[in-house]
Design a protein around this nucleic acid. Structure first.
Lengths: 267, 267
DNA sequence: GCAAAAGTGTTTCGTTTACACCCATGC
DNA sequence: GCATGGGTGTAAACGAAACACTTTTGC
């Protein structure tokens, strides 16, 4: 395809991006890997990524490559930094700008469109190509730090989620166990979660793929709290309910809260 | 000097490093800048930095360039990330890998060897070349975050320092005011500081540049606690004393403490 | 109907904050 | 000797941690 060549008075390294994509299936953290079809490291698994074009930023490159290789849209992209070991790529000098990204639970389930892209459980990651083992360790370290101060958990769950789901996610990322009651309290105290009432169920992102007629729920909506109006709720709804009260992340309240707390919110 | 040229089948960006060097004079934070002698942005101030060589990592490049441009040795170097805006350099596509570094108080004072390197007070920074204004904001943000979890303050002070000095540093970085008593307590509680006894004064890094005969202090050294042996101490020592109890950072205790607290120590 | 998971409040403990006086030094 | 800065303890308020039982759901 390319037949030209490019000449510079000084040597230039190649610049590429790599993206550590995380997903969460409700119980375990997952990492999205692609299997290399060409040398070097042919057959080994690696992070999606590729070479930087001259008309795009590193961020744009990471998004583009991910789309190309795994047809996944990103919710959250954060730079880990540049990896510049001299011999990290046997072909030529390649600087990699690495990112981590988060995929919604729904996307994470069906997201292996690309022939050789696959989700791996975080504790069953094979040995990776290049210095990607090292990059993964850095990524996990950073995520564990970031999650204390940024609401990244919500980017890994569906738009609506239950408290136990959120807790399992935090526990999976941080590798610790929380007391359920304390976790509830802490999360609710921040005020950045809003309870999803039955009236809101047929929200922008569909819930369990089912539609709901506006009419049958409008009464409940008027009365607000689903508990008080529960007896009058059509039984049919139950088929679509799943266990537990559902919440959703409220971006606006988060911004307010952050401002109140000097832009430093601890989870 | 270079007459060769370098050719690649695909276009490559240039890769450079930039280093935000911080110093502290006891009252204010300082930033080390160099004045550009050539276009683009000739005459404007910028961070020390330069192009990456093919046989060095980005970290090595940052250290080398800093040494070349300002003859300063670094105490602490941390990557901020890669800056990859397409037009950040008008000459050609240049990716910058930025770092921040800390200079000891002593170095910071006399460190402007290089003809056109100069320390600027943090709130008198001129408009900078390239996207360095933006990089500076990112650097300050990261330092303010990092200082909560890493003992970076000590890299900005001399080996020995007083508690008020340390407090002023924290206040300068974070832009807040602490209650003196609470600050003492918190710092001492961590256990990572050790009080410098008179016996230790002639420590590896000299104190106020004066030497001290080992003989005249060996007795105090044997008895440990400086308070009990104070009356027998030669009066001559007082000439070298400065106001206040001095402390030093104990790396070993820090490692222990960090391990005890899951590698997450909050300052 | 039974097992598994969701939901809820209170007490205890440790940490953080607020606050005032004496002492040492330098002018 | 006076002003400036260094050094110390205690009480109140707040946030984190520990803890058990009832309700709902799914089989």
């Amino acid at each position: 395809m390319e037949t030209q060549s490019y000449t510079y008075p000084y040597p230039h390294p190649a610049v590429a991006t790599d993206c550590v994509v995380l997903g969460f299936d409700g119980h375990e953290l997952k990492i999205l890997l692609v299997q290399r079809g060409v040398e070097p490291f042919k057959g080994l698994w690696a992070f999606p990524g590729g070479f930087l074009r001259m008309d795009e930023t590193a961020e744009q490159c990471a998004v583009r490559e991910l789309k190309e290789e795994t047809s996944l849209d990103l919710r959250y992209l954060k730079q880990l930094g540049a990896f510049s070991e001299v011999n990290r790529d046997p072909r030529e000098r390649v600087i990699s700008i690495a990112f981590y990204a988060l995929a919604k639970k729904a996307d994470a389930k069906g997201g292996d469109d690309a022939a050789n892209a696959q989700w791996f459980s975080i504790d069953e990651i094979p040995h990776l190509a290049f210095d990607h083992d090292y990059i993964l360790r850095k990524a996990m370290k950073k995520i564990r730090e970031d999650i204390h101060f940024e609401p990244i958990g919500f980017d890994l769950l569906d738009e609506q989620f239950t408290m136990p789901e959120l807790q399992r996610l935090y526990e999976a990322i941080l590798g610790v166990h929380f007391d359920r009651r304390n976790f509830y309290k802490k999360m609710l105290q921040t005020g950045i979660l809003e309870e999803v009432s039955f009236a809101d169920e047929a929200s922008p992102t569909e819930y369990y793929g089912a539609h709901r007629e506006m009419k049958s729920m409008s009464i409940d909506a008027l009365f607000g709290d689903p508990h008080t109006s529960a007896p009058s709720r059509p039984v049919a709804d139950d088929s679509r309910r799943r266990k537990g009260t559902r919440f959703r992340f409220n971006q606006k309240r988060y911004e307010e809260y952050k401002e109140m707390h000097n832009f430093r919110l601890e989870f």
